[in-house]
Design a protein around this nucleic acid. Structure first.
Length: 288
DNA sequence: ACCCAGGCGGGCG
DNA sequence: CGCCCGCATGGG
């Protein structure tokens, strides 16, 4: 247990960083209190509580954290050290991107735990955000280890999830994805050292994670981006497909492979950030 | 009541 | 390889 604070440089919109369909959207608790914004979320090691007030991000931790590791967790999770001006220079390529950046100025791509991200985005397939959130929270409450001095629980490990029966996972809202989750939990605890993917390049790491049954092209890209911080990853879901076709291809249908090529040529090395702004802006504008 | 959801694997041509 | 289909379930 302890607390400290970080001074934020550059624009930082914590609310949209959490709400914008990234892993924290699926289990973090958050609220506006006056002019400050409060957040609490479970990790594999403890519980992190933050309060953003202007440029000051105060935080406290419980569980297996030291002052150093807690600071690293927060810095990494919200990509505090990202140079947003430099990122915006790369992705502000046209009027649509300009309006997206303007609407969500300071929204970060977050960088989350690999297992947490894999589990969350397997659940996301053919699902909606509210339901994904209910499922993830149920899984935390049912399988997570209690945290001393808190009523919260740790984010459950792959080793803990693999002990669940398919039926139990289905009862927790996983539906037909239950078998994928079980396989992922077994694969990630037996056959895959998830930490080894950090040092692989994007293509190799994506290929490795796609060995999990239930992880295809889109979910793999989400894991590459939201866990491993590989900024060339460009997850293409229905929203991204529609918004690209609408804005850049005059409404004409394009194949996913063509859209990947388009993104890598338009936002080289920063596709992930472009995707996050496209996604959240497209959803708010209900582009269908 | 009815439709749909940040896709995926499997089966087929 | 590309296309098409079914899929558990609950929120809107």
């Amino acid at each position: 247990m302890g607390s400290n604070s970080i001074r934020i440089n550059g624009p930082f919109d914590m609310k949209n960083s959490i709400e914008s369909g990234q892993p924290l959207a699926f289990h973090a608790e958050y609220s506006n209190k006056g002019k400050s914004f409060d957040t609490t979320y479970s990790t594999s090691k403890g519980v992190i509580t933050t309060r953003l007030n202007g440029k000051k991000l105060s935080y406290s931790w419980q569980g297996e954290y030291t002052a150093t590791s807690a600071r690293m967790e927060i810095t990494r999770r919200f990509r505090i050290n990202d140079n947003m001006q430099s990122i915006y220079e790369k992705i502000c390529t046209d009027d649509f991107m300009k309006s997206a950046i303007s609407a969500y100025n300071g929204m970060r791509v977050t960088q989350n735990d690999p297992w947490e991200t894999t589990l969350s985005f397997i659940l996301s397939q053919f699902n909606n955000i509210k339901r994904i959130r209910n499922s993830v929270k149920m899984l935390i409450n049912s399988y997570g280890t209690p945290v001393e001095g808190s009523d919260a629980k740790l984010f459950p490990s792959a080793e803990q999830i693999r002990e669940a029966s398919i039926k139990d996972l289905m009862r927790h809202g996983a539906g037909f994805r239950a078998k994928y989750i079980r396989h992922a939990a077994e694969f990630c605890s037996d056959n895959l050292d998830m930490n080894s993917l950090y040092k692989m390049d994007y293509g190799d790491a994506k290929e490795a994670i796609m060995e999990i049954n239930g992880v295809g092209d889109k979910v793999a890209d989400c894991v590459m981006l939201f866990a491993y911080g590989k900024m060339e990853a460009f997850p293409i879901d229905v929203w991204i497909k529609r918004v690209l076709e609408t804005i850049y291809f005059d409404g004409k249908k394009k194949k996913v492979t063509e859209l990947h090529e388009f993104a890598s040529e338009k936002w080289p090395g920063m596709e992930g950030y472009a995707q996050q702004y496209l996604f959240w802006h497209a959803r708010s504008m209900k582009i269908r």
